Simulated scan of single mutants.
Amino acid sequence: MTKFSNYIFFFFFLLFSIQLSAQNKTVPKPLYDDPIYHGAADPVIIYNKAKKKWWMLYTNRRASIEDSTVQWVHGTRIGIAESKDGVEWNYVDTANINYRPDVGYTHWAPDVIEHKGTWHMYLTYVPGTFKDWNHPRVIVHLTSKDLKNWNYQSTLKLVNEKVIDASVYKINDTSFHMWYNNEKDGKSIYYADSKDLYNWVDKGKAIPARGEGAKTFYWQGKYFMIIDAWKGMEVYSSTDLLNWTKQPKRILEEPGKGKDDQAIGGHCDVVVSNGRAFIYYFTHPGRSKANPAARGSFDEKRSVIQVAELKFINNEIVCNRDEALTFKLK
């Protein structure tokens, strides 16, 4: 091989290496830390077609304010971060949600889907900034054309006015399921049906177990629902979205070894890309069992977003949060 040929070979090898690196980036830990209040939680991941980027909408908890009650998880807005690949995230802004009829209003836990060119958000709304949990919370429906500016459509008539954490799944163009947490019934999971995303019929209890932040997705030939049980994540499976079977083992219960990943995983979203499934979840780094932060301190309140890959082994979902991970969402 001539000297010139060696240069050509080296050039193409370097080009290939750069392209390969661009396609698959090593995931950092933590994945994302909100720069405003350092309290990112309850993420939902959506592809913004207009921006040609992935957007993450999340509850922007006010971890950095001085508070020894639960005011810091009230008065919250919905943060937005964006990414080209699902790995490197940058803060954008807060969502402009045109529903704030009460002073000190609170927005929690958005879920967002697209249907026929319109984005639909189902958002938990609390009418104030409170020091305790003894207040109404409802789920409101908003729509948007750009994922940033949201117009109020309705307040859903569900089982009562103590409901949170909507999760919507599109079966087809005329059939949708929603799951949510009924706080008055032991924080069990209820569900509702709709033919158009605007009119919902409550159907009652879906899963008679304590949990919140349900996320439903289709993968490996069946439906799965992952629920935050405050001691790791419970995993259920179904073939019809009505009858659910809980797998014996929880995921994201044991502490990880990565930075800010020593606590249990909470309220997640799942993105299936190229046959692989990625779970985006939040942790409270200061709430590790081995080294808990002082109660009410910034370190105890702070939360970050992490991501890990789900695997399907022996007919169960497993998740090794310490596995070295590289990917690029498609």
Rank of each mutant, 00 (worst) to 15 (best):
73 V>G: 01
63 A>W: 03
123 L>G: 04
56 M>T: 11
136 P>D: 09
33 D>A: 08
23 Q>P: 02
51 K>F: 03
51 K>P: 01
68 S>H: 12
71 Q>K: 14
56 M>I: 11
90 N>S: 14
45 I>C: 03
14 L>S: 15
94 T>A: 05
126 V>N: 01
41 A>G: 03
30 P>V: 10
94 T>D: 10
80 I>G: 13
86 G>Y: 11
88 E>I: 09
67 D>C: 05
40 A>E: 10
65 I>M: 06
85 D>Y: 08
57 L>W: 04
51 K>E: 13
70 V>P: 01
117 G>H: 04
115 H>C: 07
49 K>N: 13
112 V>R: 03
14 L>V: 14
16 F>Q: 12
44 V>L: 00
31 L>C: 05
94 T>Y: 05
83 S>T: 09
103 V>Q: 15
22 A>D: 13
28 P>K: 11
52 K>A: 14
16 F>I: 15
109 A>S: 07
36 I>N: 04
85 D>P: 05
47 Y>G: 09
26 T>K: 14
129 T>R: 13
64 S>T: 10
132 D>W: 14
76 T>D: 02
59 T>A: 07
54 W>S: 03
114 E>I: 12
1 M>H: 11
112 V>C: 00
35 P>W: 08
125 Y>E: 10
74 H>E: 00
26 T>E: 14
47 Y>C: 04
46 I>G: 00
100 R>G: 02
123 L>F: 07
86 G>H: 11
85 D>W: 04
78 I>M: 15
92 V>K: 07
30 P>K: 07
101 P>C: 14
46 I>M: 00
66 E>H: 13
76 T>P: 03
7 Y>V: 15
108 W>V: 02
100 R>P: 01
34 D>N: 02
104 G>R: 07
89 W>N: 08
48 N>M: 11
